[in-house]
Amino acid sequence: MADGSKRKLQVYFNVHLVSDATGETLNAVMRAACAQFENVMPLEHNYYLVRSPRQLDRVLQEIDSAPGIVWFTISDDALRTKLENHCRSKGHPVLPILDSSVNMLSRHLGLPASERTAAQHSLNEEYFERMEAINYTLAHDDGAGTDNLRNADVILVGVSRTSKTPTCVYLANRGVKAANVPLVPGVPPPKQLLELDGKRPLVVALKVSPDRLVQIRQQRLLSLNETALSSYADDDQVKAEIAKANRLFAQQKWRTLDVSRRSVEETAAAILNLLREES
């Protein structure tokens, strides 16, 4: 029993994320790394847009007051050196998380790396395409803007609580104009959706198992403090709703994805693959 209790204990540790930009890369790496360990809970300390010695001095004080590991993405050589030397002198594990990848790419290309701060966020054509995709996606969420569905890159269709909206937002951040249309019991799908033909926009139907959907909907009702019985999470009603949706998917010959056990990131990655196949 004692051994089982020990295995369930959460392991807490400080992690300091220091960036001269928005810190998106650091956060993504931190989440991916921590996901490889069970029962670990990082205590995040985030320091973004650190671009001057004075800003870095404040960061170093914070690190010293809560020792832990330090991950950073800083382009300026003087600031990098100061951060690394300080951490090593104090015994704080420190890692420039992009260095290995950048160095390998530099060797492969035979080119030196740029030292531009936040170079990945420069206002280039790709940036504006991403902003356009985000604006489109927000305007075509949850069945809105059906008259303009033909301008989408992808349209997600599914019953309630199949993660259509978060998946669309994730895709929009990759520059994909994503709309989503919910299938509501008793309400016919919009004719603009059913009249689409051709490869673009790509329509992807999100399938889910009845057991999984009941579980998700019950959790949703609990989060809303809704304790009364509801057909929204009733086993038989959910099965009937899913069966009707699946018949529509087959009739329309839409591409389908089973999202019963997929994360939003996994669903989005699969959709990106489908888009590449259709291009």
Rank of each mutant, 00 (worst) to 15 (best):
S114G: 11
E115V: 13
R116Y: 11
R116P: 02
R116H: 14
R116F: 12
A118Q: 03
A118H: 04
A119G: 04
Q120A: 13
H121F: 12
H121A: 09
H121E: 08
H121C: 03
S122Y: 08
S122P: 00
S122R: 15
L123I: 05
L123K: 13
E126I: 11
E126K: 14
Y127R: 14
F128A: 08
E129V: 07
E129P: 02
R130C: 08
R130K: 15
R130I: 11
M131V: 15
E132K: 14
A133W: 06
A133D: 04
A133E: 05
A133F: 06
N135S: 11
Y136M: 03
Y136L: 03
Y136S: 03
Y136I: 03
L138I: 15
L138E: 06
L138D: 03
D141Y: 10
D141I: 09
D141L: 11
D142W: 10
D142F: 08
D142L: 05
G143T: 01
A144Y: 03
G145S: 04
T146Y: 00
T146E: 07
N148R: 15
R150P: 00
R150I: 01
R150F: 00
N151E: 08
A152C: 12
A152F: 14
A152K: 14
A152P: 04
D153V: 12
D153Y: 11
D153Q: 07
I155H: 12
L156T: 05
L156C: 07
V157A: 09
G158Q: 05
V159R: 02
S160L: 02
R161M: 05
R161I: 04
T162L: 04
T162Y: 04
T162A: 02
S163Y: 08
S163C: 09
S163I: 05
S163A: 13
S163H: 10
K164R: 12
T165E: 01
T165K: 04
T165M: 05
P166C: 01
T167Q: 09
T167D: 12
Y170M: 12
L171D: 01
A172K: 07
A172P: 00
N173G: 07
G175C: 06
V176W: 08
N180C: 06
V181E: 13
V181K: 13
V181I: 15
P182M: 09
P182T: 11
L183F: 13
V184P: 01
V187G: 03
P188H: 04
P188M: 05
P189L: 15
K191L: 12
K191T: 14
Q192L: 03
Q192R: 08
L194Q: 08
L194P: 03
L194S: 05
E195P: 03
L196E: 12
L196G: 07
D197Y: 02
G198P: 13
K199H: 08
K199T: 09
P201R: 10
L202D: 11
A205F: 13
A205C: 10
L206R: 09
K207C: 13
V208S: 03
S209E: 15
S209T: 13
S209I: 00
